[in-house]
Amino acid sequence: MTTMTSAALESQPAIAVRDLTVAYNDRPVIWDLDLDVPAGVLMAIVGPNGAGKTTLIKAMLDLVRPAAGQVEILGQPYRKSRDRVGYVPQRGSVDWDFPTNVLDVVQMGRYGALGWIRRPGNRERELALEALDKVSMGEFADRQISQLSGGQQQRVFLARALVQNADVYLMDEPFQGVDATTERAIITLLKELRSEGKTVVCVHHDLQTVPDYFDWVALLNIRKIASGPVSEVYNETNLRLTYGGRVAFLSRDAAAPATAQAAVEED
């Protein structure tokens, strides 16, 4: 296909969103969005509630059918690149009283690779335990999932994505409802993923921490306001455009994205 070769020539983006419009019952939620996520970045999607962040992630994963436009991940439609994509849904989207334990949930990350009917075996178990150790949840492997705190649940989801051993990770609010310690642990992990050359996209709500945590950002409110390196596009003008002038408190951070960026590059 012509589009593929031309994209590959100019150092293929990890995710390429083209003219994407998504509507629920003919009510558009995302209007004609173009977005390139270069490979190997740690990117935040920010925007007010109802901006369409979750919808964008879902459109990338083919969970909602766009009214127009397309998404390519690693140069292919999601259908074909599925095995190389890991997904962390919003924590609230599942029933945590479901009768299963932590290890079992993490093993679900291998179901795609396992294929039909085959059950997880020793190998899956080991991979899952390894991933749990990475998120410091090793000792919780046998714990019933309803007995986890919010932060622990989030880490379990993260571990499940880790065992997917993907190249691109899409995460919906991985920091929602976690304490400062867990947040630091998670971001360290994400930065590790980035240093391994993986691409990580997170929906993020805390505007203060964007410059610390991420190197790339997309500002979204029904349409794309801006996207690019944090140092270039994460400024007051764009934030005002995104949040509609409700972000007076931001001026401190917005004034100093350059220094924040420097901090990110240090580690």
Binding site: P28, D32, R223
Partner: peptide
């Protein structure tokens, strides 16, 4: 549907 498609088109061109 056509109204929506028309606007979609307009926005596409506008962008």
């Amino acid at each position: 549907r056509w109204e929506f498609a028309g606007i979609m088109l307009a926005i596409h061109l506008f962008n």
